[in-house]
């Protein structure tokens, strides 16, 4: 009797976790795919989903922190930052393995610098975050194009090996990103900074009156988001055989989509890191499923869009006045 009640309570608890939905959806989509292929290639599909999902998760974490700051906060410069950091680091490394650490540091520094620039526009010039990150994305996208000269710059061989390596079918990069996600979960819930982000997103005025350093927290968040975009640009360049000029393009929408589908509140103040993984896997598996069914890119995109709108319509509604 008591055990049944405990189980029931556990079930309710689980159902309250929004990230569960993303994973459940991902699982169902995967199941549908392998039923269609009669069990063929289920493992490979999962492995590929993990590998490709990694990049959405890395930028998704940064975007999620920014969105959690509350209405109006979003970083539209993620693709430009990825491209810029990717191009700069690949060029400096010049395919030499010995330069990988330098290249990584360059990529991170590029990201951080763009983050500082973004927040400078937001804070000093009172530009709304959307416009600020939009205009800086124009500038850095161009800078990347001009700097990269339109050629795909190859990564050092060791970096390419590392980013595509697998252990027992699990991509090493995915494992690293799971660890990153865990660390960022701890940061979110267990540090003064993370608590501040959530508090500001729920009620910025109350946060200020509770003695939280609102400006500093916002600054750190924008810089961190851009730095993660820089990191993503670095590893993606390694993974896809070089920095190309439109490599960030799809990540503007992807970074926001995984945040929304993953169960983070767009109204701010409630963030959910496991959901990012669920959503990233789901997005990739959905594409795979529709491909397997022989459906074209058109249907795939329409489905993706409708799913985002359905999720926000079901989850939203009770959002704040903005």
């Amino acid at each position: 009797m008591a055990a049944a009640r405990t189980a029931a309570r556990l079930a309710t608890r689980l159902l309250e976790r929004p990230w569960l939905w993303a994973f459940a959806a991902a699982f169902l989509v995967w199941l549908a795919t392998i039923i269609f292929t009669k069990g063929q290639g289920g493992g490979e599909i999962l492995s590929a989903a993990l590998a490709f999902g990694t990049f959405s998760v890395i930028v998704g974490i940064g975007q999620m922190y920014v969105i959690t700051l509350g209405p109006g906060n979003v970083d539209l410069s993620i693709p430009a930052t990825m491209t810029f950091a990717g191009a700069a680091s690949m060029k400096i490394m010049a395919t030499q393995d010995s330069m990988i650490v330098v290249g990584l540091l360059i990529a991170l520094a590029c990201g951080a610098a763009i983050g500082v620039f973004n927040y400078g526009l937001i804070r000093l010039m009172r530009i709304p975050p959307i416009i600020a990150t939009l205009s800086s994305s124009f500038v850095f996208q161009s800078a990347a194009i001009a700097y990269g000269r339109g050629i795909k710059i190859k990564p050092p061989p060791s970096l390419a090996d590392f980013t595509t390596a697998r252990i027992a079918g699990f991509p090493i990069l995915a494992i690293c990103t799971v660890i990153l996600a865990l660390v960022m979960t701890v940061v979110l819930h267990k540090t003064v900074y993370g608590r501040s982000v959530i508090a500001i997103g729920q009620n910025a005025r109350a946060a200020k009156l509770s003695g939280i350093a609102v400006d500093f927290t916002r600054f750190v968040t924008y810089v961190m988001c851009a730095t993660l975009a820089g990191l993503c640009g670095f590893v993606l360049s390694g993974f896809s055989g070089g920095a190309s000029l439109n490599m960030g393009a799809e990540f503007l929408l992807a970074s926001i989509a995984v945040v929304v589908i993953g169960g983070t509140s767009v109204a701010g103040g409630f963030a959910n890191i496991p959901g990012l993984w669920g959503a990233a896997l789901f997005m990739f598996l959905l594409v795979t499923m529709l491909n397997t069914f022989g459906l074209g890119a058109g249907i795939r995109l329409v489905m993706t869009g409708l799913i985002i709108i359905t999720v926000i319509t079901v989850a939203g509604g009770k959002s704040t006045d903005r």
Partner: peptide, 13 residues
């Protein structure tokens, strides 16, 4: 609803 997310979804559609 936040228009950013809805119109973002619509951009896919």
């Amino acid at each position: 609803l936040p228009s950013i997310v809805v119109t973002l979804g619509m951009s896919f559609v």
